[in-house]
Amino acid sequence: PEEVRRLVEELYRKGVSPEQVKKILKKQGIDEREIEKVLRRIG
C-alpha cells in the first residue's frame, strides 16, 4: 500500500538500515511482507 511505501522511503532516506526499517514498522503492526516488497523495489 501507498502508506507503507511512504513510511519505508522516509526511514530509508534518513539512513535507517533495511533491518531497522523492518523492525520499526513491524512494531507499528505493518505486515513484514509488505515492508520487504517495498525495500526490494527501493534497494
Rank of each mutant, 00 (worst) to 15 (best):
L25V: 01
K37L: 13
E34M: 11
R13E: 06
V8L: 03
I35E: 00
I30F: 14
G15V: 01
R6P: 02
R5M: 10
V4P: 02
L11C: 02
R5N: 08
Q28V: 10
L7Q: 08
I35F: 02
R41T: 15
Y12W: 10
V8F: 03
P18G: 08
E19P: 07
I42E: 03
R33F: 06
K14E: 06
E2N: 09
E32A: 07
E9R: 13
G15D: 03
L11K: 00
K23M: 14
G29F: 03
P18Y: 10
V16E: 06
K27R: 14
K37H: 08
E2C: 08
K23W: 09
R13Q: 07
I42Y: 07
L25P: 00
P1H: 13
I35M: 02
E10F: 14
Y12T: 08
E19V: 08
L25Y: 01
R6N: 06
P1G: 09
L11Q: 02
Q28K: 12
R13H: 08
K22D: 01
V16Y: 14
I24L: 12
E36D: 11
E36N: 06
G43S: 14
V38I: 12
E3K: 09
V38Y: 07
S17V: 07
P18K: 12
E19C: 15
S17L: 08
Q28G: 05
K37Y: 06
G29A: 03
P1S: 14
E34T: 14
K27C: 07
G29I: 01
R6S: 06
Y12H: 06
K27W: 09
R5G: 07
K22F: 14
V16D: 03
L39R: 01
V4M: 10
V8W: 02
E3R: 08
L25A: 02
L11V: 01
I24H: 04
I30K: 02
D31S: 09
R41N: 15
V21K: 00
Q20L: 12
K22G: 04
L7F: 07
V8E: 00
K22M: 15
K14Y: 08
I35W: 02
K23S: 14
Q20P: 00
I42C: 06
K26A: 12
R40A: 13
R13I: 05
E36F: 02
P18S: 11
S17G: 10
E32S: 06
R41W: 15
K14Q: 10
K26M: 15
Y12E: 03
E34F: 05
Q28M: 14
V38E: 13
K14V: 06
K26V: 14
